[in-house]
Design a protein around this nucleic acid. Sequence first.
DNA 1: CTATAGACCTGACGGC
DNA 2: TGCCGTCAGGTCTATA
Length: 268
Amino acid sequence: MPELPEVETIKRELSPHLTGRRIAGTTVLWPGTVRGASPSQFIDSLHGRKIESVGRRGKYLVICLDDGHDLLVHLKMTGSLIVGGPSDEPGKYARVIFTLDNGATVFFRDPRKFGKMQLVARGEVTSQLGIEPLSDDFTVEQLKELLAKRKTSVKPVLLDQNLIAGIGNMYADESLFEAGIHPLRPADSLSETEVARLHDAIRSVLQRAIESKGASIANYFRPDGSAGWAHQTFKVAHRRGERCQCHSNIERIVVRGRGTYFCPACQK
DNA sequence: CTATAGACCTGACGGC
DNA sequence: TGCCGTCAGGTCTATA
């Protein structure tokens, strides 16, 4: 599932292909992908636009255009952006195809059709998102404040994009494991030490996943079609039935409707 | 405010 | 082999 490290990897690897290019044409194969406008309006608005930069905010890819609009892309669970040549076949799961002024194509591939893209005025929409966990603004104090205000369990707080932007199910589980904190602990019950451990865990888990080019569980691919390997370093996420390094069995429970993996011995 | 449920989708998987 | 039901999960929307 694309979360912050996966979207960051895509941003970095897609940017050289897009920056400075113009959009020569757009094909919408699945209209449900486009939000906020009809497919034909969407196609018209993009035609001839120059791409100034490729950025990321939370789990959104932000493609800045020369007319003051941003193209926001959310990959949801199974979306990926694949760069191809002029003669490459779109494939069964292509939902939107962009053609650039140098003949290159970018396929938005999304088997489950959950992904969305939308044109917005620059800076709009993503302003509602919470703090970037890898930015300098995300301090232990910040995290402490966020957690202290919530009586709910700690995991849903990590997943709330309006509080912290970019953490999804996998990295929430990995961060809580690394911090030795049980996912059902009430958010406001964490000690100062635990908050500090969680803060460190979130940042190192995300940073290491970026260095591993993301986790290729399910349908995540990098723009060149290759996989990442962050999932190989996961300690608990998606490891039901396996043993923790402490030899206890990794458990799976459901927290607010999401599969949650943890080690009952290591996480208190 | 919080919390929950349904909707969106389709591939994978277990049971028979 | 194949059919069928269930599950997965990010976010939005609706409802309690």
